[in-house]
């Protein structure tokens, strides 16, 4: 279970406060959506979960399976099952996709005390997962994300997720920049990972994604706090009414 308790976050080297007492729990086996206007702190929450530098937790805590993770390095969190699919996946010139995937896969396996994959095992595994996500295997020989289209980058994120077999999946605007076919492929990839041992936090700006990845709960994030929580129908309401109600409250 993911428990975010009264989380206060500011930028480390500026006075800007972004999260102002965010509280939220996602039990294992559930998929929760976070919706909110631009600039409300959705990506900040995602980054703080993954352990990015530059953000300072001034109050509150984040527990994953009962253990506080806020002091952990990102790779330690990854080993504990945390995975963030980036809103803007990064390009790594000079590092081949396969090398990256293999290094990452074996690094987390090692920390999880699983045997490292041999080359044939790894190749079989990656080919299988890539095929399901409609990813051309040749693409993985190229440097990570370099020259990929927006949709290719998002699929590449989901492939990494499938390879690393995380237990807490955080997806930050995975739908942005996807056409309807790509959205279907990505959603199928995400849905395939749904299971009783996984918790998922799906961040999105639009309701559209939630037709494909149907959430158990929907939270509205505005002004650094969860303003409202409801079932999947809340997403539809928001689609009609927009966020004015909540941003109004913030102002």
């Amino acid at each position: 279970m993911l428990e975010i308790k009264n989380l206060h976050v500011k930028l480390a080297d500026e006075d800007k406060v972004i999260l102002k007492g965010l509280t939220l729990s996602v039990p294992k086996g559930e998929v929760h959506a976070i919706m909110g206007p631009n600039g409300s702190g959705k990506s900040t929450l995602a980054y703080v979960l993954a352990g990015r530098e530059g953000y300072e937790v001034t109050d509150g805590d984040i527990l994953w399976n009962g253990e506080s993770i806020i002091e952990m390095e990102p790779d330690e969190r990854a080993a504990k099952g945390v995975f963030l699919a980036f809103q803007y996946p990064m390009e790594i010139p000079g590092v081949a996709g396969l090398t990256f995937l293999r290094t990452a896969t074996n690094a987390v396996r090692k920390k999880r005390e699983l045997p490292e994959m041999t080359t044939p095992e790894f190749m079989k595994f990656v080919k299988e997962k890539a095929a399901k996500l409609n990813i051309d295997f040749e693409m993985l020989k190229r440097p990570v994300n370099v020259g990929f289209s927006g949709g290719e980058k998002k699929r590449s994120e989901i492939l990494q997720m499938a390879m690393l077999e995380p237990t807490l999946c955080v997806l930050d605007e995975t739908d942005s920049g996807l056409d309807i076919d790509a959205l279907k492929v990505v959603s199928d990839g995400v849905n395939a990972l749904r299971g009783p041992d996984r918790a998922m936090l799906v961040i999105t700006h639009y309701q559209r994604l939630l037709n494909h990845i149907v959430p158990d709960k929907v939270h509205v994030l505005a002004d650094g706090r969860i303003q409202k929580t409801g079932g999947k129908e809340l997403a539809l309401e928001l689609e009609k009414s927009g966020y004015a109600e909540f941003t109004g409250k913030a102002a």
């Binding site: 993954a50 990854a78 790594i92 010139p93 590092v95 990256f100 990452a104 690094a107 987390v108 440097p143």
Partner: peptide
């Protein structure tokens, strides 16, 4: 540091991530 974060968020230890990025730099 953003690239290091991207790598470490995938479970790659910081030292390995840095090594990979340095190698890719000179590899070009």
């Amino acid at each position: 540091p953003d690239l290091v974060f991207y790598c470490t968020s995938r479970g790659i230890p910081t030292a390995v991530a840095r090594g990979m990025l340095i190698e890719s730099f000179i590899g070009e």
